[in-house]
Computed example of a mutant assay.
Amino acid sequence: MKVVLFCGGQGTRLRDYSDQIPKPLVPVGGRPILWHIMKYYASYGHKDFIICLGYKGEAIKQFFLDYDERVNNDFVFENGGAKIDVLQSDIQDWRITFVDTGQNTNIGGRLLRVREHLDGEEMFLANYADTLTDLDLDAMIQGFSATDAVAGFCCVKPPYSFHLVSFGNDSRVAQISDVKDSGMWMNGGYFALRPEIFDNLHEGEELVIEGFERLVGQKRLYAHQHESFWTCMDTFKEKQALDDRVAAGNTPWQVWKDD
């Protein structure tokens, strides 16, 4: 299946990096987070990507234009460089379509702008460019395929602790609780979509707001509950936590290592 990746945001909460490079190119353990996400999908056999570009999109194009398998993988060097045998490949069998979807376009608008590249697809995948997970993608797709839903997504429990507060009539606190104990779930990305999504999404609307609200009313929105590893990279603290995981060899999202 084709995979649409939303790579146009400015990543303002990672300002130290995003002033120089777009958020999808912010490195995690020496590799852009976008590479990790694409490698994840490729490990499940989904290697036909559509990248929705926006802020500093030219930098993402240049990253792939300059990508050298020999630099990024182990290789055997012989005869003073006359013969070089790369021992494994990262992206050789990937197909990537780069589409400028606008500087300030929202996610729904970016999806609409790549519609022509999805003609003929019975189903396709989509995702943000800042989330990592060990989600069993095959299981989610299988569950979604067994329904008549137009859209499906991975939902996760909030990964961080913060407090929810409810009030009585006099503005005094009636209850305070940790969100982790609330039973709430949140959108974790990793979307599976059928072409009918374009009938439920209009210019200027947001995919997860107006688009999904229509599908909720039709009872055609599917959620796959995932309780294992999931994280986003919105802040420097979250980026540092991912780097620490790489340094410790604790990288559950790198499911391709099990292949």
Rank of each mutant, 00 (worst) to 15 (best):
M1G: 12
M1L: 14
K2W: 11
V3E: 00
L5F: 06
G8L: 10
T12N: 07
T12D: 01
R13K: 14
R13N: 11
Q20V: 13
P27H: 12
V28C: 10
P32E: 01
I33C: 02
W35E: 03
W35H: 11
W35G: 00
I37M: 09
I37F: 01
K39T: 13
Y44K: 10
Y44I: 14
I51T: 09
C52S: 12
Y55R: 05
A59I: 14
A59R: 09
K61T: 11
E69A: 14
N73Y: 06
V76G: 00
N79R: 14
G81K: 03
G81T: 02
K83D: 07
K83L: 09
D85Y: 05
D90F: 10
D93F: 10
T97W: 02
T97G: 03
F98A: 12
V99Q: 04
N104D: 12
T105W: 04
I107G: 00
R110S: 15
R113Y: 11
R115W: 05
L118D: 04
D119I: 12
E121F: 05
M123P: 03
L125A: 07
A126W: 01
N127P: 01
Y128A: 15
T131F: 03
L135K: 01
D138N: 11
G143W: 03
F144R: 08
F144C: 15
F144S: 11
S145Q: 11
A146W: 01
T147V: 15
D148Q: 07
D148T: 14
A149T: 10
A149S: 15
V150L: 07
G152R: 02
G152F: 03
C154R: 04
C155M: 07
Y160N: 05
Y160E: 03
S161W: 01
H163Q: 08
H163C: 06
D170F: 10
Q175L: 10
I176N: 00
V179A: 01
D181E: 08
G183Y: 08
M184L: 15
G188T: 11
G189T: 13
Y190I: 15
F191A: 07
F191S: 02
L193W: 04
E196H: 09
D199K: 13
L201N: 03
H202T: 13
E203P: 08
E205I: 14
E206I: 15
V208A: 13
I209G: 00
G211N: 06
F212S: 04
R214W: 04
Q218I: 03
R220I: 08
Q225W: 05
E227M: 10
F229C: 10
F229G: 06
C232W: 00
M233I: 14
M233K: 01
K237E: 13
K239M: 14
Q240C: 12
Q240A: 15
Q240N: 09
A248T: 10
G249H: 07
T251P: 04
T251Q: 04
Q254D: 07
V255P: 02
W256N: 08
D259T: 06
